[in-house]
Computed example of a mutant assay.
Amino acid sequence: MTTNNTPSRAFQQDARAWSAFTGTNYTSALRQMSSPLAQGLLGPRVSARRLIAALHDHELIGAHGGAPRLGENGFRSDSPWSFNGKSDYIQLALITDMLRMFTPTSDSEAPDVDSYSLKHTAEWFLSPHCSYVSNGRLIWAAATLRLPIADPDGYGPNLLIGISERKHNYVRRMVGTGQTRPQATHYRPAGYEHLRAALPQVAAGELITENWVRPEPVIEPAPFHDWLIQQVGRNDVVGDLAGDYSAGVRDSDHRVAHTADELLAIFHEVSHSPEAYDAVVTSIAEWMRTEPSSAPVRTERIGRDSSEHQGWGAGAGTTERHEYRCPCGDGKIIEDHDNIPGFREHDVWIACDKCRAEWRFVERRGVRDWALEPVAVRPAA
Results as ranks from 00 to 15, higher is better:
S131H: 07
A38G: 13
A204I: 02
N158S: 13
T144A: 15
I334Q: 06
R49N: 10
W359E: 01
L41F: 04
A376R: 08
G162Y: 02
G162T: 06
R50T: 12
E363L: 09
I163H: 02
R214Q: 04
L199R: 02
E323C: 05
A141V: 04
D97M: 02
V133C: 12
T121S: 13
S87I: 03
T2S: 15
A276S: 11
R100V: 12
G66H: 07
P7D: 07
Y170F: 15
D347S: 12
S246T: 14
A242F: 05
A17P: 03
E220W: 05
G136N: 03
T209W: 02
G65S: 09
I219G: 02
K167N: 08
E323A: 11
W287F: 15
N339Y: 08
F343W: 09
S19M: 02
T22S: 12
R137F: 02
D14A: 02
M288Y: 01
H268C: 11
V249E: 00
R301A: 06
L99S: 05
S306R: 12
S283T: 15
S28L: 11
R378F: 11
Y155K: 08
T209E: 14
G205I: 08
D112H: 09
A198D: 02
G178N: 15
L70F: 05
E323F: 09
Q310H: 12
H120D: 11
A314M: 14
V213D: 08
R9Y: 09
W312Q: 14
S164L: 05
H56Y: 10
P157N: 04
P341K: 10
K167A: 11
T259Q: 11
S8I: 10
T318K: 11
A314W: 13
R50Q: 14
E123G: 10
G62T: 04
R356D: 03
E335N: 08
P374M: 07
D107T: 08
P104W: 07
P111A: 02
I334D: 02
E220D: 12
H58W: 04
A198S: 14
V249M: 06
G178C: 14
L263C: 10
R364Q: 14
E373Y: 01
P148D: 03
H254P: 00
P221Q: 15
E373T: 12
R234D: 07
V256A: 00
H120I: 07
S117Q: 12
D353T: 03
A17R: 04
P221H: 13
G65C: 08
N25H: 14
L199W: 04
P274D: 09
R173A: 12
R76S: 06
Q201N: 10
G178P: 02
E59L: 01
W140L: 00
R188W: 02
M288I: 05
Q310S: 13
D261C: 06
R16H: 07
R344V: 09
V270Q: 12
P341D: 06
R49L: 07
G65Y: 11
D78G: 15
A260G: 09
G136W: 01
D153Y: 10
L138R: 01
V232G: 01
A247M: 13
Q179I: 09
D78M: 07
I229V: 15
H120C: 01
T24P: 01
I61P: 00
Y192D: 03
S307L: 08
G43E: 10
